[in-house]
């Protein structure tokens, strides 16, 4: 027991600086943000009044003054779900392509480093130039191929805007999960595949019967990470590409938090909305952990 205490003192003396950083610059602001969300603000100035949960209630009930919460919740979910699916599908595909050991494999593997290393906002700037309605290269390609006669707006097209953001988002976020999938695939012994081939299993059968089950823990990790990312990391893209438009087609929660706080200067309501966003994130992660936890599945089976 005494040794344990001694170790504790030693361990804490080592990690204390790190904990201090995290406490002062992450947890303290978080606690402070809860206090802000209980306050009233007018034109960016605190009214000095504690309104408790009125900011939260306003978000859910006052559609006119706190506009678009449900709408943007829907947009956010739509984006998150499609982004997670797209990233998982594409990165798994690329990981499988890399595993094939073709001439293109090494190319694929290392070219992914580029989008991985480029800062998110800079990639938004790059895509903004590509999507440009008047001189963008995407328009140029379509024009050259004869698919369009005149340059058209892409991020202003209500049907395309969200997908344009998604396309740029996937570009930036595919590499990390591809590498994770690659590493996961590498842990599956070749003998398993050979055995399956002996049994005459086709490519698809092998994929669903062997690859996917063996990748379960990796898949869980990727899903959790991608969901966390997709819920907020699109902010830079929305900021640069669409500013929430056209109409409210790309007004996600993260963007609405920004608008509430810094355009409408309602810091209380903006912060309340950010807390809701964080809660949504927690819910998502909890669901994944429960649904996909392999240990728990085994436990359940054992129990039966």
């Amino acid at each position: 027991m005494k040794r344990y205490t001694k170790t504790s003192i030693f361990a804490y003396s080592i990690i204390l600086p790190s904990l201090l950083f995290i406490f002062i610059f992450l947890l303290f602001p978080l606690l402070y943000s809860i206090s802000i969300s209980f306050r009233g603000y007018k034109y960016g100035v605190p009214t000095g009044e504690i309104v408790w949960f009125r900011n939260f209630v306003d978000i859910f009930t006052k559609e006119t003054v706190a506009p678009g919460f449900y709408e943007s919740l829907l947009v956010t979910l739509k984006f998150t779900v499609s982004a997670v699916i797209a990233v998982v599908v594409i990165s798994l595909t690329i990981a499988l392509l890399i595993k094939e050991r073709c001439i293109t494999s090494t190319w694929l593997k290392y070219s992914l480093l580029l989008p991985y290393a480029i800062p998110g906002v800079i990639s938004a700037v790059v895509w903004n130039w590509i999507y440009d309605a008047n001189f963008g290269v995407l328009n140029g390609v379509l024009f050259k191929l004869g698919l369009i006669k005149d340059y058209v707006g892409i991020t202003s097209n209500p049907g395309l805007a969200l997908w344009a953001i998604l396309f740029a988002y996937v570009w930036k976020f595919v590499p990390a999960s591809t590498y994770i999938f690659s590493a996961g695939l590498a842990t599956i012994p070749d003998s398993v595949y050979e055995a399956a081939q002996m049994d005459g299993a086709g490519t698809f059968r092998t994929f669903f019967k062997i690859t996917i089950p063996s990748l379960m823990p990796v898949l869980q990790l990727v899903l959790v990470m991608q969901t966390i990312f997709a819920l907020v990391m699109h902010f830079g893209l929305v900021f640069v590409l669409t500013q929430g438009g056209p109409g409210s087609r790309t007004r996600t929660l993260a963007w609405l938090v920004y608008m509430e706080s810094f355009t409408y200067t309602r810091f209380g309501r903006g912060t309340a909305m950010a807390i809701i966003l964080a809660l949504i994130m927690v819910v998502f992660i909890y669901v994944y952990l429960v649904l996909l936890n392999p240990e728990r599945q085994i436990e359940r089976k054992g129990g039966r």
Binding site: A133, N134, D150, G153, T155, P246
Partner: peptide
């Protein structure tokens, strides 16, 4: 009016006009 005006500011319109669009 092209739909892209929804992503254009007055400055973009100015450029398009100068370009003869």
């Amino acid at each position: 009016i092209p739909r892209k005006v929804l992503e254009m500011t007055a400055v973009d319109v100015q450029q398009a006009f100068k370009k003869g669009d």
